[in-house]
């Protein structure tokens, strides 16, 4: 019987320090067995349980795109026991990955639509996955206009900086990079909170979906902006976080009302959330 609790063994191939405070690192993981990689078919928005034997498991959004082959990419914040262990780990160490888990962003609906991506801080991981996925030459024509607003507290805390600045130059995606504040005189992008920049750039809601991921306070102030721009709640999509263990809807802790965030989510529209208890 297939055991959904058994992780695929992977080896840490590369570790990239993402932010100036060194609290965010990106891990490139390679499957030890090629058949495991073939079995791990995912879409942007899904997550995986990263399993460190002896330490535990943590649910982390997949930051790489299915169009990127040969590795999985996860960006991990140093918070607790497992993440601290990972921050001290070195390439070559064997760990595990269990997944893909949860539902992806609704790609069947996003195809043929304009897509607005709004991200804050280190919640940009599955958004990066989505962006890379949509910008892939095989996929780009499936989507209309792609607009991105991505902000962090300061330039040093932006994720995937090299890619960001490359995307910013492209003409098949409109990227607004912003920081809350900076003392860098050479900063040539936006300064301001994500909700304010969203309002200023006013992406059109016509035939569009918005995907919003970020800290609760950012989401709270971005929602009214999107509503004013004409996005209905069923076209504003977010991805939730919860304490999780099993990742497959069995251990019982990550529910919001009837929905398990791990299995029925983590992707929800605000229309769905409005019908659920406000307990997340």
């Amino acid at each position: 019987m297939n055991n959904p609790y058994r992780p695929y063994p992977v080896v840490i191939d590369d570790i990239i320090v993402e932010t100036d405070d060194k609290n965010l690192r990106t891990y490139h993981l390679k499957f030890l067995n090629p058949e495991d990689e073939r079995a791990f078919q995912f879409l942007p928005g899904q997550f995986a349980e990263i399993s460190v034997p002896g330490q535990g498991e943590i649910p982390i959004g997949i930051a790489s795109s299915p169009t990127e082959k040969g590795f999985l990419k996860f960006t991990i914040n140093k918070v607790g026991k497992v993440t601290t262990y990972l921050h001290n780990a070195r390439p070559g160490e064997v760990i595990g990955v269990r997944g893909p888990l949860g539902k992806p962003y609704p790609w069947d609906k996003l195809e043929g639509s304009n897509v607005v991506i709004i991200g804050g801080g280190f919640a940009f991981t599955t958004l990066r996955s989505s962006l890379v996925y949509m910008l892939h030459p095989d996929n780009r024509s499936l989507f209309g206009d792609i607009t991105v607003v991505y902000g962090a507290r300061n330039p040093g805390l932006l994720l995937y900086k090299d890619e960001l600045f490359e995307w910013e130059k492209r003409d098949d995606v409109t990227l607004h990079i912003t920081v809350d504040a900076t003392d860098d005189p050479n900063w040539k992008y936006n300064v301001g909170f994500v909700p304010a920049i969203t309002k200023e750039k006013a992406p059109s809601s016509e035939n569009a979906y918005a995907i919003v991921c970020g800290p609760p306070i950012m989401i709270k102030f971005t929602l009214p902006v999107l509503t004013d721009l004409g996005f209905p709640p069923d076209r504003i999509i977010t991805s939730l976080e919860m304490r999780m263990k099993c990742g497959i809807g069995m251990c019982g802790r990550c529910n919001i009302g009837t929905e398990y965030v791990c299995k029925d989510g983590p992707v929800f529209t605000f229309e769905q959330l409005s019908r659920l208890p406000n307990e997340y």
Partner: peptide, 28 residues
């Protein structure tokens, strides 16, 4: 409802599943 915990005993370890309770603050 259950919890999953890892334990290490010198050079070997075990992943355990344990009953958990929604009554405990740590649960969520």
């Amino acid at each position: 409802c259950f919890d999953i915990q890892d334990e290490v005993y010198e050079s070997e370890g075990c992943r355990l599943r344990l009953w958990d309770s929604c009554m405990f603050p740590l649960f969520t």
